[in-house]
Amino acid sequence: MLAPVLIFVLAIALAPLIFSFSISLTDYRLTDPTQAKPFVGLGNYIKAFQDKAVLETLWNTVVFTIGAVTSQVVLGMALALLMAGETPFMRALRSVAILPLALPPLVVGLVWKALYNPQFGPVAYYLKQIGLSVDRGLLGDFNTAMAAVLLIDLWQWTPLLMIIFLAGIKSLPGEMLEAAYVDGANRLQAFFFVMLPMLLPVLFIGVLLRTMNAFKVFDIIFATTGGGPGNATSVLNFHIYKVGLTFFDMGYAAALANILLFMIGVCSAFYILLLRRQRAAESL
């Protein structure tokens, strides 16, 4: 019974990882006429941490991830609380609210690119109406591009967290909140001291999922800014794509991909550790 599972794990998960790690130790370039794939040890990893472009994209990735996850958790929780009612209207509203999730990120990027367009986009139009200068558009300005991309991500992925949090809220025992109110707790106290602690496991899962996805952001950047203007929105996954599929430096691209994987792994381990501690505390 164990064999099929082992085969699955080896073939689907481990084999590509082993291959990726092995080529990351070589200077494997598709454009090398000799196709020699010389062994360079950890050379690609050392090069990555000395590469200005990689460090910039790494920083942008961290900024994007923190910005995306933080804003989406807050907004997702707020929407979940707002839409927790079981009226026909709320049920319909929830169905509409999760529509962005059904759209491919590339399509979302193109639609928002049009919305942001400084010439004919409605976002630029309304910003001009309130006296804000958007000559280059939010995506074209070095100071606003990252925020504009974050807003697109917020629009698409907040509903996912909303659904996760909503499921958590629905599973909460109502007696606890009622008891808190009977004991004189106000609404904020009831939320922060009663509801939120009970929602922590769900919160961690939501944060973990979105952190992993935000680290890997690619489609939206590809469709909207191409990493620009300047290096404002250049993230690691987009850089990996460029190194691997534009420059065809497969060894270096594999090393960068493994660094990204390691970062996601560390974040995941951190969240899982927090989750276990929280569960352990609950069981005491």
Partner: peptide, 13 residues
């Protein structure tokens, strides 16, 4: 009432 408070957080969206 908690939803009412949360509404302020969704205003921007």
């Amino acid at each position: 009432q908690i939803r009412t408070l949360a509404a302020s957080a969704t205003a921007i969206a």
